[in-house]
Design a protein around this nucleic acid. Sequence first.
RNA 1: GUGGAUGUAGCUCAAUGGCAGAGCACCUGAUUGUGGUUCAGGUGGUUGUGGGUUCAAGUCCCAUCAUCCACCCCA
Length: 444
Amino acid sequence: MAQIEARTAAGMRDFLPNEMLKRRYVISIVEEVFQLYGFEPLQTPILENTETLLGKYGEEAEGLMYSAKHGRQDEASVAMRYDLTVPLARVVAEHYNEFNFPFKRYQIAPVFRGDRPQRGRFREFYQCDADIVGVGRMIADSELISLAIKILRRLGFEAFTVKINNRKILTGMGQYAGVPDEQLSDLYRSVDKFDKIGADGVQKELLEGGIAEDVVERMMTLLQAGGSGTETLDNLAEVLADYEVAVEGIDELQQMATHLTRLDVPAENYAFDFTMVRGLGYYTGPIFETVLDDDSIGSISGGGRYDDLIGIFRKESLPTTGISLGIERIITLMDERGMYPDSIGETVVQVLVTVFNREMQDEAAALAMRLRNGGIRTELYMSDSRLKLGKQFGHADKKGIPIVAVMGPDEVEQDIVTLKRLQDGTEVTVKRGEAADKVRELLG
RNA sequence: GUGGAUGUAGCUCAAUGGCAGAGCACCUGAUUGUGGUUCAGGUGGUUGUGGGUUCAAGUCCCAUCAUCCACCCCA
């Protein structure tokens, strides 16, 4: 029988133990800060009814969605979630009467997209979302930005900027430019490329899109008017004064600027950027995106207000805003920059208890239990081949276990144990009863 | 979905159409109470897969699959 080739499916990854330790470190910090801001955990199924997921996107979503089949054909079709936002909207509608609003939840969980894999782009990846349901005021959006900044700082990032824009302003600009509604998405797409293709590139695309030359000229001026001061907004408000929706959007950003100061967000950490669009069609108000000042990897967090989404599942919608941390990118960056504390290490094991020979097996097991009962993460050596201390030390070394315990005939006779710290070769003998405390001391 | 590049040992990669190799990793020993360093030896291959050209194919041709890169898209 031919062997089956051992490999993950396209775009899927294994996380081996040493990677898991890093991922868990990042996730634990993110989760801790979510809770500091009063968000509560939520878990939803990986599979949802296909109808739920198709919700708003129809055929658009179909191309990227994994459908899930089983032997029975006579049930409603289900598919794997491609984000955590649509399931949240479903949860809110389904459990509406069980919640007190505002409802603040976070969720860190895998999602699936049948995209073609590329660097930093996988078919299974983690999303890390915090959302506030039931508040239309700008304090909610502002708190999300404060939250994201707090998390990034805790993880060790310093030079970054949250770009802020408002869909209402973009809509107003579209009206100002005289772009018909059905061409608005083309306009946004071009504007969004500003970082990549520059002002000239955007200008060219807009002209090719059939927008009049003088309008393009004026739009280019508007787009490049970003900055963190509210005077930026004032200037924009003058130009767009005739477009109600734009005025509303500008006013929202002005409110946010005030809130952000109160929420410990310094002016150098955010900027209004009218070229920032974000792809999602469901945003209705403020949108935000975080980029590192010293790396071109793209955004490491993003979000915005989507007041209409819950309306897909309920007669009346609820104002909602949310933020998503690009945790896969964040982890990639932290790997590249070595931003993990040394304490994470390569293994969870703190001590390897060696087995001197088969006769000493029970003594070794007893010592392992003594250490475990003392709160030390302990591996008891086991092997089907000949027991050799050198091999056991080698095992500890390769695995990154910091301390090795040796208990040979001499130690048993004197009721002691030899502990060796591999890193610097420090070796001590202690009474067995004091082993756990001594290990803790050696670990520093 | 479009275009390009690359597939050789577990990993990183060599090999003018002419005996499939190196480094690292792994295993054994030097070392029967101690890892890393060193030294000696060893395991490991249907060269992604299927066809074709040739006396001869890792190498050339076709197809296919996979990976990577740039687009498209990115809920």
